[in-house]
Amino acid sequence: MDFAQAIIEATSDVFNTMVMLEAAPGMQATEKTTAFNDAISGILGFSGDIKGMLRINCPNQVAMAITGSLLGMEVEEIDDDVRDAIGEIANMIAGGLKIYFTRHNHIIELSIPTAIGGQSYTVHSLANAEWVAVPFTLAAGVMVVELQFVGLK
């Protein structure tokens, strides 16, 4: 199964239908970024045939641009709308991944989204988990969609 392709399909679907912003997928990332400044990460766990975490990392400007387009309003600061919107984007991308996995005969169940944000934070996942990340370039900056998972042979 091509996890980068799964990320690209699920993310593009959400951006083309709901967000209506261009998000151009780039080359699969080779180095992890774990430290973030003035950013928001939407995180959602999943389990079943594959266990893992989906994380979308957005600099604040990108998060505000996404929220503005999603809600059809001007967004000038990081407020509850932005945090909810980034959680909801993670939720919808995870829904798309679930469909992609099901198509490849792997059933997963989703947890609920969490939005983590702040001036300075670091994210960390199990050292032995597999990791796939794809950057997406938007007019406002770069968003990275990451999958970490175990369990698939």
């Binding site: 975490m53 945090r83 959680g87 909801e88 947890s111 969490t114 939005a115 983590i116 702040g118 300075s120």
Partner: peptide, 20 residues
């Protein structure tokens, strides 16, 4: 079923959930 665990740390961060 449980997902894999994850950790966050830092000088200043917040966690938000949609209403549950």
């Amino acid at each position: 079923q449980l997902s894999i665990p994850s950790a966050v740390c830092g000088d200043s961060y917040s966690l938000d959930y949609q209403p549950q």
